[in-house]
Design a protein around this nucleic acid. Sequence first.
DNA 1: TCACGTCAAGCAGAT
DNA 2: ATCTGCTTGACGTGA
Length: 307
Amino acid sequence: MKIGYPCINWSLECKGNRTFRLRSYSVKRLKETVENNLDCLFKILKYNLDHNILFFRISSDLIPFASHPVCKFKWQRFYRKEFKKIGDFIKKYKMRISMHPDQFVIINSPDKKVLARSIKELSYHAAILGAIGLDASAKIQLHVGGKYLDKEKSLKSFIERYQKLSPSIKKRLVIENDDKIYNVADCLRVHRQTRVPILFDVFHHSINPSNLNLTKILQKIKKTWKKKDGILMVDYSYQQQGKMKGSHATSINIKDFKKFLKLSRPFDFDIMLEIKDKEKSAVKAIKTAKSDKRFIKRVILKKEGEI
DNA sequence: TCACGTCAAGCAGAT
DNA sequence: ATCTGCTTGACGTGA
């Protein structure tokens, strides 16, 4: 069990997800931004290591407009050294990495243009993880997609489209139960047809449940992850009181988290805390989880001063 | 330096 | 019809 947070670290000065407007696109601007983002990503990973945070979701904004036709820049080759440095660090300390393309990436959309853009965006995500040199345990998580007035048809559409994806995307793609349409049971149906692993989102399940309980879910979902995929990933959050349904919590509730750790035994998984205050909640969660037998502490190096 | 209109991209549900 | 949430406000122009 590793615990992590997505994309942004509020304690550090720098941001690894800086971007700019399409109108201001230039190779110079892109380079400046990417250099900042890669440099900051490395700083975040160092911060994470110092705080025992061994799971991290890399921002989709790492290379702005990478999947847009405007971008002809060969960033993979140009930043080979930087990617290697980041990758070596991640591998050395056995960190887990994921990515989550944003809401525009939809595989089952009836609009072919949306599908084409989505595939380009997925290729970009796979290219990042490949450039960093990570194996198939570094995942790209996606929802099944829209309903389009016919859930059955739309679910089947996802399955058909998934089967046509390139091996480099399939190697990393996992599907996540969402908060409105496709619950865990629906994801399991997709899995049976595609063998795609399922990422369990605790919060979405609480809003859009299936009739399975937590133990049953973990039992079933665990089997969807093969050895090469690594142990399963779980997204953890809960409803922010007083906000609209679906709003993520601003800060972790340790009492609830403890309960979740207890209820989820003996299953082992990596936990992504989708909580607004990011690393602050991760640090708190780790303090709580440290006594749990499943929790993995940072690798202690014999030679100190290596980082 | 700051206010504020706008930003590549989709979709569903609440209001 | 418009707004909100989703991984999240932040970019950029004009004053």
